[in-house]
Computed example of a mutant assay.
Amino acid sequence: MKILLTNDDGIQATGIRSLAKRLSRSHEVTIVAPESNRSGVSHSITWLTPVRIRERETIENVSSFCTSGTPADCVVAAATISGIDRFDLVLSGINHGQNLGVDIRYSGTLSAALEARVHGIPAMAISVVSEENPDFLAAVDFSESFVREYDWKKLPKHTVLNVNVPAIPRDKIRGISCTRPGGLIKRRWFEKKVNEWGEEEFWMRKEILHDSHDEDLDFVNVDKGFISVSPIDFFGSCDEAFRSSLCDDLRIFEEHWFAKDNEKLSVASCRE
């Protein structure tokens, strides 16, 4: 497949580099990502100023470009550089930090995937739920296998998949859940500080709140050790027939994914 990788953490982020290294073994991969961290910009686009697009060496055998724009700009830039029909799939991530519940309203990671869908390209956003130094292995393994096995023609016209992977070792993942975003909200405020020059500065602070713990919510499943896969429609809804179909597909994929793990363990055991 011809795959475009983008993100909101920036072209040098560990998540996108890890994913590029793995996928480039069997796919034609192109990276177009922001030149610096653009987290939390949602679906903003650069409209009143020009966007710089520069080729950048990052991963061996992977064509890479960085832009001065937003994650959504990066998808537009990729379509401009290579043509809309160039790519079979867009993957946004792997994001360093969660995109659960209300986060989807702020997420540049998810917005890049949605922008790809505007251009008619199937897309998936992937995040690791950690603010510290996450282990990306489980997210990379899931992405590689799911890209290969899922029938991307099933994805409805305006829908993307939003994947959140618990920040736990690969062998501790309990399963894969078809979920929906919700229940998790954030109250925000500015905290005033005085800098070294005596000037007042205001820093954003947040408090995480939960107003629901329904079993099918994304954050509930991640907290239990499951990979969360939420179908998200560009217009804020999701076709229920597709959701049901996706849940069935994820159950089948889960069986295959864990079966491969067992095969690897058996082989390792025999070698010992």
Rank of each mutant, 00 (worst) to 15 (best):
L91H: 00
W189H: 11
L209D: 07
V229H: 06
R25Y: 08
T159A: 02
S130T: 03
I121W: 04
C238P: 00
W189G: 14
N61H: 15
A138V: 04
P169E: 01
L250C: 04
R25C: 06
S39L: 15
E144V: 14
S212L: 12
N162D: 13
S39R: 09
E200K: 06
R117Q: 08
F146Q: 05
D233Y: 03
E272W: 10
W197I: 00
L250G: 08
S92K: 03
H213F: 12
L246H: 04
A268H: 02
R148L: 05
S244T: 14
V118N: 11
I3A: 00
G83Q: 06
S44M: 15
I53H: 11
C66K: 02
N133Q: 11
N95G: 13
A259H: 03
K186S: 09
K21P: 00
S177Y: 12
T58F: 07
S237Y: 07
T46S: 11
E255V: 15
F202G: 10
E57S: 13
L217T: 14
A33Q: 03
T46C: 13
E215L: 09
S44C: 15
S143W: 03
T46K: 14
Y106Q: 04
M1D: 03
D151I: 02
S107W: 04
G175D: 09
E215M: 09
F136A: 05
E240I: 14
S26M: 02
T67P: 01
H158C: 11
V76S: 08
M204K: 11
C270V: 11
C74D: 15
K224V: 10
H96T: 03
V75M: 03
F136I: 06
A139E: 00
G40H: 13
I168T: 00
S230C: 15
K21N: 09
D8T: 03
E207T: 06
F136L: 10
Q98M: 07
P34Q: 03
D9A: 12
E201H: 07
E254Y: 05
D218C: 11
S39Y: 13
E263R: 12
S63N: 09
E55N: 07
W189P: 01
E191V: 10
D248W: 07
I59C: 00
T6S: 10
G93S: 06
K172Q: 09
L4A: 13
L246I: 02
G120F: 05
S63H: 09
S42H: 10
